[in-house]
């Protein structure tokens, strides 16, 4: 029995390790490739013979490289939409959980039902809307569809309903305004949920591809994924630079991931949130 157990445990570890290698190897290969120059990258050696950071200098520092701009664009878009989602989603969640008013159920259903409409479909009318209002090639154009997330509303409503009513009523008796009750009493109590929502929203917007691809046509307004997708073009594929770009695009996420791994895993498990 015990040998059986050890044996099965050993094979479990073996299987999991093999799979973990499959999962992690592409990342290693990407980083290794990013350290090779234009010639080395086509050579059969696994490890770079003269590892160097020239590729990073080329895409981050060289004049005319749009990469830093794309990086900033992605950061602006991800930060602004996240801030907006945090504010609005928690406000809506709070209102739906803590107020009673005619039409509440209908409004909740209305919001939740938008989860069923896939982005692939909405991009067409969004594009028409952006043309009508001349939002093309602006941060607002990239961000407006993501300013509020229906999923976040759902999540925040769940958490806001755990806030005790007594606390809110006590604040009202003290004469606090409704907005400051929300901001100073309710919000601090749902901090963990806000953290999870923030991380996921950031990741989702950092990685978003389809809509930015459509709305940003000037290279100066590309986000990182769109820039990366346009890296290879008429002048051939500079694989050493593509791999470097991919690495740079991942670094912020890997940092976010390592810092907030607990919240991320709990977030996935808790909600099944999709990025």
């Amino acid at each position: 029995m015990t040998t059986d157990r050890t044996l099965s445990r050993a094979s479990s570890y073996a299987l999991l390790t093999v799979l973990a290698l499959v999962m992690v190897f592409p990342f290693l290969w990407m980083i290794l490739s990013s350290l090779k120059d234009a010639t080395q990258i086509f050579k059969p050696a696994l490890l770079p013979s003269h590892p160097g950071l020239d590729n990073y200098a080329a895409i981050l520092l060289s004049k005319g490289s749009k990469f830093p701009r794309w990086f900033i664009n992605s950061a602006v878009v991800a930060c602004c939409t996240t801030a907006s989602v945090l504010f609005f989603d928690s406000l809506i969640g709070y209102t739906l959980a803590k107020f009673s008013f005619p039409g509440k159920k209908l409004i909740f259903l209305l919001i939740i039902s938008t989860l069923m409409i896939p982005t692939e479909m909405l991009v067409i009318p969004w594009y028409a809307l952006s043309r009508a209002f001349k939002w093309g090639n602006s941060y607002w154009g990239i961000m407006f569809p993501g300013m509020i997330s229906a999923f976040g509303v759902f999540l925040m409503r769940q958490f806001m309903s755990t806030v005790p009513d007594d606390l809110l009523d006590a604040a009202r008796i003290d004469g606090m305004g409704e907005l400051s009750i929300f901001a100073r009493i309710a919000l601090p109590l749902v901090k963990p949920a806000l953290g999870t929502l923030a991380i996921f929203n950031f990741i989702g917007n950092w990685n978003a591809f389809l809509w930015p691809l459509i709305i940003a046509s000037r290279p100066a307004m590309f986000t990182l994924p769109v820039g990366l997708a346009n890296f290879s073009g008429e002048a051939g594929s500079d694989w050493h630079l593509i791999m470097t770009g991919a690495t740079v695009a991942m670094v912020p996420l890997i940092i976010v991931f390592l810092v907030f791994q607990k919240q991320i895993i709990r977030g996935i498990a808790m909600t099944g949130l999709k990025g």
């Binding site: 799979l19 592409p26 591809f209 991919a246 791994q261």
Partner: peptide, 20 residues
Amino acid sequence: LIYVLPYITPVVAVSWVWRW
């Protein structure tokens, strides 16, 4: 952690890595 890594990284970036 290792298994979750591909899920949180940009699909565009990993697509190019695999294409390579």
